[in-house]
Design a protein around this nucleic acid. Structure first.
Lengths: 227, 227
DNA sequence: GTAAGCTGTGATGCATGCATCAGACGTTGG
DNA sequence: CCAACGTCTGATGCATGCATCACAGCTTAC
């Protein structure tokens, strides 16, 4: 029984998605809001598998912090408290700062080129008032730095963290304001300059400053550029 | 050799240990060295449960990075490569630096008192050439700082990281050299001074410097104080 | 003698059934 | 009317059995 496991966002890329990815997608996609119960039998029917692999999946998601399993009661989508969100942003700052520092130390030409191009396109997107494209580029900028750090363990922890933040980010996306989206580009530029100068100390500081600034504004709702 | 089924902290509290803890203890305790296969049926018999909960446990451990599940083949204790160990130490440096900085910012009197006492006892242990006690105190010092940071998400990520490093640390423990164990106490003292001065920037830098120094020596085998 | 193919064995992957238990709801006593 | 209790329902927790597959070792062709 080779059920074609198509992804749900209609990209048509039809890559084989593991059950874990699919259930997680259900949560992050908003189909199950925080607090919603995740019944094993329901999910089993939904994905046409038995309860056993569903149970394994839910336990994994518990480990990721996305769901809460109350023994003998059920599994529920976890709603991070505001405090936890603050904590996670502190971690994000630390992770991305570390990554920027490592990348600066390595001075990888290819990544630098990508980042330069990214900033150019960000300027264009900002000029075009294309908020969606801008958000995409911001995401790409951070991803490039994380990946460029060349530290796989860091990537793992970072991904775990961002998964937990993801639902929150989706909510924030809706609050984008095209008029202010270029605010963070200047900070991106500073980070890139530090990296190009191989100033790992400065790069880390600039990146942390940037993440801190955008997270502050996210938390207070004043910038909310989805970054 | 090791108490297998009871809790390991010798508290005698015999708290109900979850299967996850018990299997993990088997790995970290060295009963299953890296590369060893973890047969589901064997573990099921060992713990007198069926294969189903064992499977769930193994999937969790995979997520923790302690084991590697090769589909349709089996589960094996993962042996971190040297590169991964370096990566993990970089993360450790970042985590503990963040924690020290947060603790300095908070300036919690209780934690500071604990740390001061810890350093005193460390000096005594060093004077007594009591390597085991010293290692214990070092561990406690770091734990106090991590917990004092008051960031639960940070603790989670830190624990995950240290679990992956744990096997390696056990190996290092055997290489302790009583003559040099006091080397890190000076660094601990510096960290504490920064925290007392509420210099979060300095505290972070001092902590990172300390972690970097000890990890360097661990990796090159020149200090190897288990820190 | 070597390499390709085949079969056996043992493991995992999953479906299913039963035991157990938390929480809901109706009932009853005050 | 309210609170305490008993029953009931639906879920989870786990044991078990069957299908499937990777790998080893043997067989066979060349």
């Amino acid at each position: 029984m080779h059920q074609t496991l198509v992804d749900q966002d209609g990209r048509g890329t039809a890559k084989e998605m593991t059950l874990l990815d699919r259930v997680r997608g259900l949560i992050l996609g908003g189909d199950f809001p925080p607090g919603a119960p995740l019944s094993e039998v329901f999910l089993a029917q939904e994905f046409e598998v038995s309860r056993t692999p569903i149970r394994e999946t839910l336990k994994q998601l518990q480990h990721e912090g996305l769901v809460e399993i109350r023994p003998k009661v059920g599994t529920f989508v976890r709603e991070p408290s505001r405090r936890e969100i603050v904590e996670m942003f502190q971690l994000k700052e630390s992770f991305e700062g570390l990554a920027a520092g490592l990348l600066a130390r390595r001075g990888k030409v290819r990544e630098i080129a990508i980042l330069e191009r990214n900033i150019e396109e960000s300027d264009e997107a900002a000029a075009d008032q294309d908020a969606a494209r801008y958000a995409e580029l911001v995401h790409e900028f951070h991803q490039t730095i994380i990946r460029g750090a060349d530290n796989h363990k860091l990537m793992e922890h970072y991904e775990r963290l961002m998964n937990q933040l993801a639902y929150h980010r989706l909510v924030l996306r809706t609050a984008e304001r095209p008029g202010r989206i270029s605010a963070s580009t200047a900070e991106h530029r500073t980070v890139l300059e530090m990296i190009k100068a191989k100033d790992h100390f400065g790069a880390e500081a600039a990146m942390r400053n940037h993440v801190y600034a955008s997270s502050r504004e996210v938390l207070t709702g004043s910038r909310a550029d989805g970054d």
